[in-house]
Write a protein that binds this DNA or RNA. Structure first.
Ligand SMILES: [Mn+2]
Ligand SMILES: [Mn+2]
Ligand SMILES: [Zn+2]
Ligand SMILES: [Zn+2]
Lengths: 134, 134
DNA sequence: TATCAGATAGGAATAGTTCCTAATTAATTA
DNA sequence: TAATTAATTAGGAACTATTCCTATCTGATA
């Protein structure tokens, strides 16, 4: 994505611009995969040698809070971040722990939750992927 | 639940019986709530003074593997166990972190996952609960 | 009874995340 | 512009849920 677009995106979400933030946002938006903080850190270290893991955590929290990306709790003790905001489900392989995006045919069922404010819906399938079934 | 029923339940899932297992199973089956390993441990300590946290972890893993209960990854870094096996969704309040059971009106959408073996489906709503909205 | 496998207890080790503080950078004010 | 203030970042220590390791215990088997 163009630098200009990224800057706009940050500003429109009330986030002031910094090199670290631009890089982290770009990294997550251009990929359909799901990364952990540590992975984002390792991938960006070459580009921003002074980058710290704390900053990655700070930034990911901020982005998630402001709706720039989605936080996923799919497996034990790890948080993944998803830059794809279009509604979709996930499939987690219990063997290799790979995460797959799953397009949704129908919209997700409305929940009967009177008085609650729903901010996010998450649909996850769990099982064994085609690779691991062989 | 009757001791007899519990023993049957274990045996029918190819799990040999022990006091620890009976107590842990009973505890989780009779409650609609969602507990962490540590909580199960604390609750059962008075009944089984020699109980160890390791055993609780071992047992919960075993039960989950054999389909006696469901493993939930709803919030950061914690695993909850659910003894209610009937299909239902969850609502997690982002403020107080309480977990609510949500009955499902419709069945969950079939996933377009050719070649994958689906073992579990998980639907989670996230937001602010009625208590925290006041 | 002696042998063996499985289950348990206890504690050390691990790892992802959070918290704290000082240094750096950006924004605001005079 | 210079001085002041606020926000961001870097680095590392602290925290904590979970896993891993090992010795002990228990129950079944021969
Ligand atoms: Mn995704
Ligand atoms: Mn439940
Ligand atoms: Zn797999
Ligand atoms: Zn709440």
């Amino acid at each position: 994505m163009l630098q200009k677009k990224l800057i706009e995106r940050l500003k429109s979400h009330d986030i002031s611009v910094s090199m670290q933030r631009l890089h982290i946002l770009e990294f997550l938006l251009e990929k359909p995969e799901h990364y952990r903080a540590e992975e984002v850190y390792e991938m960006l270290k070459p580009k921003i040698p002074t980058l710290s893991l704390s900053t990655v955590y700070n930034t990911l929290h901020l982005f998630s809070e402001r709706g720039l990306l989605k936080t996923l709790h799919l497996e034990e003790g790890v948080t993944h971040y998803d830059g794809v905001l279009e509604e979709h489900a996930h499939f987690v392989c219990e063997k290799c722990l790979k995460i797959f995006n799953v397009p949704l045919k129908e919209t997700l069922p409305e929940a009967d939750l009177p008085g609650m404010k729903i901010l996010q819906v998450n649909l996850t399938y769990r099982g064994i992927c085609h690779e691991c079934l062989i």
